[in-house]
């Protein structure tokens, strides 16, 4: 049970939503955008979040779009992980979201919520990182389409009241050779020890990770070393992992040494799979 009361709003347009947020904020109501709501309800129950005005964004048509248009895949922020997996227009994203929480939660959890939530793993952002995705954000005075890499640094860097509306991925990225690997400490349904996505474009492997440190990331230095001309896979992988030395942290899921060991094996298998695919 949620231990406090709030008002519930369900606007139908982006303009109304943004205005409503700022009006409620001016009134001191601590408004919060509500997508799937899984994080909000579980945190509210434990007094870890408080709001007097919940704005449900699922009634906004633009946030429910899930289609190809002009050679781009557009995914609204209110689209659920199950809808993404079932439609399967971007297989790497589908594989990734099918390993976030459990299947029933995926029926409720939205991609916008997973990217913008407070839980650090935000695994659905990984395929978007390697696919050079754009993100549409509604602000107080405008709706901007921005490269994800410009607004996601450790987390979404949004101003108060900004609303994630859509994610856009170019068609050329959707069916490139790709790999998703998620390793957990014990249980299959768990936060990641390491989640890795890899995608091969123009004979270069792009990678993004969650679980290694305190936030999801993609590293150009890491990719440069992984794609070096050295013939020995082990050496390339060791060089690449060494570039992340200070970033890989100990946590409840595993020590940094264990994570490096696991990462080495994951990368070795990934490189072999890409090589096999190129034969």
């Amino acid at each position: 049970m949620i231990p406090f009361d709030f008002e519930y709003y369900k606007p139908q347009t982006i303009t109304d939503t943004i205005k409503l947020y700022h009006d409620l904020d001016l009134m001191g109501r601590k408004p919060i955008y509500y997508g799937g709501g899984t994080e909000f309800i579980s945190m509210a129950r434990m007094h870890n979040v408080y709001s007097e005005a919940v704005i449900d964004i699922k009634g906004i048509p633009e946030l429910n779009i899930h289609e190809m248009k002009d050679n781009e895949l557009i995914i609204g922020a209110a689209v659920t992980l199950t809808q993404i997996a079932e439609l399967n227009l971007f297989p790497l994203l589908s594989l990734t979201v099918k390993r976030i929480a459990d299947h029933t939660i995926q029926d409720k959890l939205t991609i916008g919520g997973n990217i913008a939530g407070t839980i650090i793993y935000r695994e659905s952002v990984l395929p978007l990182m390697v696919a050079d995705s754009d993100i549409v954000i509604a602000k107080k005075d405008a709706v901007d389409r921005l490269p994800l890499k410009d607004v996601f640094n450790k987390r979404m860097n949004l101003e108060k009241g900004d609303l994630i509306c859509q994610i856009i991925i170019k068609k050329e990225y959707l069916n490139l050779p790709s790999i998703h690997v998620k390793r957990t400490k014990v249980e299959k349904i768990d936060y990641p020890l390491i989640t890795m996505v890899a995608l091969e474009k123009d004979k270069k492997i792009r990678t993004a990770f969650s679980g290694l440190g305190g936030y999801p990331f993609r590293s150009s230095k890491f990719e440069q070393l992984l794609n070096s001309n050295k013939s020995n896979k082990d050496t390339k992988i060791k060089d690449a992992i060494n570039s992340l030395q200070s970033f890989i942290t100990d946590d409840l899921h595993g020590s940094s040494e264990y994570k490096k060991f696991m990462l080495h094996n994951m990368l070795y298998e990934a490189l072999e799979n890409f090589e096999e695919g190129n034969k």
Binding site: Y8, G37, T104
Partner: peptide, 11 residues
């Protein structure tokens, strides 16, 4: 299937 503990009734 939805976990009813994680859904508001108004939804």
């Amino acid at each position: 299937p939805i976990k009813s503990c994680l859904m508001l009734t108004v939804e």
